[in-house]
Amino acid sequence: MSDATNRPLVEIAGLCKWYGDFSALFDINLTVHEREKVVVCGPSGSGKSTMIRCINQLEAHQKGTIRVDGTDVTPGMKDIEKIRREVGMVFQSFNLFPHMTILDNLTLGPMRNRGMSKAQARELGMHYLERVHIAEQAAKFPTQLSGGQQQRVAIARALCMKPKVMLFDEPTSALDPEMIAGVLDVMIELAEDGMTMICVTHEMGFARKVADRVVFMDEGEIVEIAEPETFFNAPRTDRAQLFLSQLLGH
């Protein structure tokens, strides 16, 4: 079912990160190919978010290499904006710009970074708002929308930069239960369109449906990488078994 190509888009090798003396990530190795969908899961504090935040350098790493579409990503690099324009990111807490309308949230990036005219950017913005099924909210402000709608706007905002890869950092964790499905549907549609995705999420249904591989992390290390069926039905490691039993055990 995987439609991944052989072209590596994100290559992480020997990645290490410390917060003070605390080792947050240790020797992370992961390559994600074009059109591949990877779900990252693991207990809280296991370094999942930190890892994907290193990819666009919202966190600086101290050791190891990260390459995005062949370009080295290094801490403090000058052209980090160029990398970030190719890497879309969706946050747990949406982080929409509250002082702008929904459409202005979407057009800011393309206008500032891609040199688009206001008209072009608005057309692009409306296109992606339609894709996430909230075009009718374009003129409203973020606080007037439900959490689920805000998260879909955040996805559309990232898509407006036409990124090569999308990072999702627990996109449904801050949502009320009835809002989760709408966001997951949008993510599934995105996956079906062939977007390369790295998703930190505990939505197991989503993982089974779209993931090519599941990455299980614990205490800052990658413990297990497997196809979703294998991982959920027959996890190899004790730590993964424990995690899954806690996740499903109630």
Binding site: N56, L58, E81, R84, N95, F97, L108, N113
Partner: peptide, 17 residues
């Protein structure tokens, strides 16, 4: 909030923007 900086950076805006 820090998230506003991060959201701006994540869509590739320069620090000044």
């Amino acid at each position: 909030p820090k998230g506003q900086w991060e959201a701006g950076q994540a869509i590739g805006l320069s620090p000044l923007n």
